[in-house]
Design a protein around this nucleic acid. Structure first.
Ligand SMILES: [Zn+2]
Ligand SMILES: [Zn+2]
Length: 983
DNA sequence: TTCATATCTGTGACCCCG
DNA sequence: ACGGGGTCACAGATATGA
């Protein structure tokens, strides 16, 4: 418990006047919010979510901060802002005049400016200046309307002058609220609806810079462009991009000197000492993680002590310096990092941000153009891009503890506390009405949303606590009342402390909506969690927990908190709730999937992670919020169960990785005499399928994402000096230079586009023939075709989603697909291959575990197949673990594979050119991506690729031969006729 | 309608703990 | 110590009501 910590739970009605002596005498009339104060803040942050768009804008903010009781909102400004808005847009130096107006004295004016600046954060506060910042207490500490205009920072004298000036100059004008809302250009005004980020005033036209020195916001040293400017279409919409710098918005370092920083802030005012980058203290190299990231055990050895970037005695001064710096730098925003968080070195705030948002069901909106730079300042402006960045750099949402785990943790903590009985601060931490949780009232396992919403809930509770301490059922009513008035807000899971003994819980693993978790969970472990036991404590614990449950889809195993019986009883008491079916065979945990259970696919709801987790999201169903107003029925949108009704189309868990049979497809067929016929037919099928998918109009039209293609100049060259050359696989040694592993906006966008293109690849298989085929233990060639059909079409769709693909001629497209399909499928298979069991793992379907053992798969095949099998296995082994685990990397590989020059139908010169270009493009992007994840390690991974691709090619070339001599006679005739229809 | 205030909400610095 | 989660001051945004 904090030494400085838990001092008080101040419940007084008065405002705390903490350390501001001059304020003490102010009569405190108004009832104040209860403020609990644990420790004193050292740093203060400007949490402004709205980026100022101009210096003028900043100044306005400043002004508000200084001179209004409450900045933000529509009414904070007394009459000043009216005037500002009325004049401001035509008369840009209103503030200047304002300042001049009330003090013609140069010195005083200076002082005012300084104050502005002070609150602006362009200068470090001196200690006594800190007293002048307005605490929120002070802000609300308003004795009368008159004084409310000027709260803290201004002396009485100043205040009078202000009043005087204002009275002279302001006229009644349009309402502020009008201005602040309706009159904002609608194109950029984004009404706040709960989750959307709020960027309200960013559309102000850039205004001329007031001609005063202090309005010059230092562009900070022109150093090392941390980020390249976002890749825009030729003419970036003027208002659409946050302009963090000066008006001219010169591309350059994203070092925003306006950010308000105080205390021992990391910021250093340019003219005061170090010319270093103020906000982003780590120079260009910040992007990448130290090599050790996720690299243990992957077999790649570190050289030059790179991997041991923590180790102080790296031989090479530069590189150790370099790596140290990188290690201290948040790979998301460049801020000072505290260590690894969710698999990546990040700062505290990104850690918290990720923890809070990675699992959120709805996607954020980017108020700009989906390519926001993320730095320590701008990170607040666009949650979407920030979150995307988090995923891109490799943060793993899977590592966020799920509800079950949280509960356990809490319990064990309670236990410990109970036994040692050391509760130092009785009334403090625990919420009064949620007293130390009884073992089974703990809110639970409805994963995901539950966790997420619970956070909301907790916050509310917290807030409630801050009001008069006792909370009674009334509070709930109030809360509900409130919520009813805020339909947009995702209703927090209500767990009325009094009335509802089992708050938001469904028992572990027992609700209709659990199936998704089930599947998702499996996925998580299939695709992701390497057995290398990356992390010590928590992680290990979690892994063991989850993997345990994934292996045993039963709800016992000590996982259950509420017995099924208990839960049923509970449900019985809840009007409208039904006992879900499927109760018992589901497993608990896994929050993510729980988000989405209401049956529709949630295209828009997917989060943009680049990690493999993506597929989880895209598969899960949105369960969350729909209803849930009524506390009692809420037991979790859970039973939005329409999705799980028997007859309905197979929901979420049927996420077959058909493609994992990439190898199987072509190998598992067979076993007879009519080989030739089969072979021929298979080939026909193969080609037809591709062709027809190609011709199909319904396939994905590429969105106008210009990021996808060949904007090569926009990308940074891969840092290790192995920009991918047409000259294949000739990897030059890394040059010594200042490296920047951080992906730039263009690259991020391109990656996004890739992910976009693969959207749907992992969709669950529709029920039907494919599914039946898939479920068969012994798959006939027809079954294989059924499965392949879907998969191949999806690949074609992916290809069509790549803009550059369209530039290729029809014949060229066909050639690419025909030549690349098997390779792509095989690559796909890699990701599902589990070396420990020598089998492909596929997610479960209604409890069945479909896993295909490689030996079995090849068993019936001919000798060629055995060789093929060996090759495949070798390839699987060779394919880097790190890549395997990373879905996006795999995508990139697949695209690189797709864009390989093929000869079968020979390609035209032009096609060849495009293909080569794209191949290089994706390889280069992959390289950069890997760099961003692994820093110098990327090189090692990347270096293996060429060989891997070679192997792949070999595998694919031989695939067809496997048919030979193994096809049962007559089998070919059984093949579905429509596969061979000629159009 | 305007404005003061209350409330909701996301952020991030600090903290606790296994 | 590391890296999970928890806490809560803060401040912007929004709702409410005089
Ligand atoms: Zn960060
Ligand atoms: Zn954005």
């Amino acid at each position: 418990m904090g030494t400085n910590g838990g001092e008080t739970t101040s419940v007084s009605m008065e405002t705390e006047t903490n350390e501001n002596p001059e304020k003490v005498e102010e009569p405190v009339v108004r009832r104040k919010r209860v403020t609990r104060r644990r420790h004193r803040r050292i740093h203060s942050k400007n949490n402004c979510l709205t980026p100022p768009n101009s210096d003028d804008d900043r100044l306005r903010t400043c002004f508000l901060i200084m001179y209004t009781p409450q900045c933000g909102g529509t009414s904070y400004n007394g009459g000043y802002m009216d005037e500002y808005y009325r004049q401001g847009n035509e008369n840009h130096d209103f503030f200047k005049r304002f300042c001049e107006g009330y003090s013609s004295d140069e010195e005083t004016r200076e002082e005012i400016y300084r104050d502005l600046q002070l609150h602006y954060g362009t200068q470090p506060l001196s200690s006594n200046q800190q007293n002048r910042q307005i605490s929120s207490d002070e802000q609300s500490n308003v004795a009368s309307p008159a004084t409310s205009r000027v709260t803290t920072p201004v002396s009485d004298d100043e205040f009078l002058k202000i009043i005087e000036y204002t009275e002279q100059n302001s006229r009644p004008v349009e309402s502020m609220s009008t201005l602040s809302q309706e009159r904002r250009p609608s194109s950029t005004y984004i009404p706040r609806t709960g989750w959307e980020s709020t960027n309200t005033l960013c559309s102000l036209e850039p205004l001329p810079l007031p001609d005063h020195k202090i309005f010059k916001f230092e562009p900070a040293t022109p150093q090392t462009g941390m980020f390249t400017p976002p890749m825009h279409s030729p003419q970036p919409p003027p208002t659409n991009q946050p302009s963090y710098h000066n008006f001219d918005d010169a591309p350059g370092p994203s070092t925003l000197s306006w950010e308000r920083r105080q205390g021992q802030s990391t910021y250093r005012f340019p003219q005061m000492g170090t010319p270093d980058d103020p906000v982003i203290h780590s120079p260009p190299s910040i992007g990448a993680a130290p090599g050790m990231n996720g690299y243990h055990g992957s077999g790649v050895k570190l050289e030059e002590g790179i991997g041991a970037c923590g180790s102080p005695d790296d031989g090479n001064m530069d590189s150790s310096e370099e790596s140290r710096r990188r290690q201290k730098t948040c790979r998301v925003c460049g801020d000072h990092a505290t260590g690894y968080n969710f698999n990546v070195i990040t700062c505290e705030s990104c850690k918290a941000f990720f923890r809070r948002n990675a699992l959120r069901p709805k996607e954020f909106k980017c108020p700009y153009s989906e390519d926001c730079e993320i730095n320590s300042v701008s990170r607040r402006f666009c949650q979407k891009c920030r979150l995307r960045k988090c995923f891109t750099v490799g943060m793993k949402k899977e590592w966020i503890l799920n509800e079950e785990q949280l509960r356990r943790r809490k319990n064990s903590r309670l236990n410990n506390n109970g036994s040692s009985n050391k509760r130092p601060q009785p009334g403090h931490q625990m919420s009064p009405q949620a007293p130390p949780q009884q073992p089974h009232q703990s809110p639970i396992p409805h994963p995901g949303v539950a966790v997420y919403q619970q956070q909301q809930h907790q916050q509310q509770q917290q807030q409630q606590q801050q009001r008069p301490l006792t909370i009674n059922p009334m509070e709930n009513n109030q809360m509900m009342h409130h919520m009813q008035h805020r339909p947009n807000v995702m209703p927090p899971l209500m767990s009325p402390p009094v009335a509802q003994p089992y708050p938001l819980t469904s028992p572990v693993g027992s609700s209709a909506s659990d199936s998704p978790p089930n599947r998702s969970l499996t996925m998580m472990h299939n695709g992701e969690k390497s057995p290398d036991g990356y992390d010590p404590n928590m992680m290990a614990h979690r892994i063991s927990q989850t993997s345990l449950s994934s292996n045993r889809p039963k709800m016992d195993n000590g996982q259950v908190v509420l017995s099924t019986e208990e839960y049923k009883q509970l449900l019985a008491r809840i009007p409208g709730a039904q006992v879900p079916g499927l109760m018992n065979e589901e497993e608990p945990i896994n929050k993510r999937a729980a988000y989405n259970c209401n049956g529709h696919p949630m295209p828009a709801d997917t989060t943009p992670p680049y990690s493999n987790a993506m597929s989880d999201m895209s598969l899960s169903r949105n369960n969350s919020t729909s209803s849930g107003m009524q506390p009692l029925t809420h037991v979790n949108g859970t039973h939005s169960s329409m999705s799980e009704i028997p007859g309905s189309s197979v929901p979420t868990q049927s996420h077959f990785d058909i493609a994992s049979f990439g190898m199987g497809i072509v190998t598992a067929t067979g076993g007879g005499d009519a080989a030739e016929e089969m072979y021929r037919k298979m080939n026909t099928f193969y080609e037809r399928c591709i062709q027809s998918a190609l011709d199909s109009p319904e396939s994905q039209e590429p969105k106008p994402l210009d990021a996808m293609h060949h904007q090569k100049p926009e990308y940074m060259a891969p840092n290790h000096g192995f920009p991918y050359q047409a000259d294949p696989y000739n990897v030059p040694p890394p040059p010594e230079r200042n490296i920047n592993y951080q992906l730039n906006a263009a690259e991020l966008k391109a990656l996004d586009a890739v992910r976009e293109a693969f959207f749907g690849m992992d969709d669950p298989m529709e029920q039907g023939r494919q599914m039946q085929s898939f479920l068969k233990a012994n798959k006939s060639p027809a079954d294989i075709m059924n499965i392949m059909d879907v998969t191949m079409r999806r690949f074609v769709k992916v290809a069509k989603g790549v803009p550059a693909f369209r530039e290729v001629s029809q014949e060229g497209k066909f050639s690419l697909l025909k030549g690349g399909m098997i390779e792509m499928l095989t690559v796909r298979g890699v990701t599902r291959y589990d070396p420990t069991t020598n089998s492909f793992k596929t997610p479960t379907i209604k409890g069945q575990n479909v896993s295909v053992n490689v030996d079995d798969m090849f068993a019936k095949l001919n000798a060629n197949a055995q060789a093929q099998k060996a090759k495949c296995l070798e390839f699987f082994g060779f394919f880097d673990e790190e890549i395997k685990k990373n879905e996006l990397a795999v995508y990139l590989v697949m695209l690189a594979v797709l864009f390989s020059v093929r000869v079968d139908p020979p390609m035209t010169e032009n096609d060849v050119r495009i293909v080569q270009e794209q191949h290089n493009h994706f390889m280069s992007l992959l390289s950069r991506y890997l760099e961003s994840l692994y820093g110098e390690q990327a090189r090692r991974i990347f270096e293996r690729l060429p060989k891997a691709l070679g192997m792949l090619n070999d595998i694919a070339r031989n695939a067809g031969m496997l048919f030979m001599g193994t096809v049962r006679s007559g089998e070919a005739e059984e093949l579905p006729g429509e596969f061979f229809k000629i159009k």
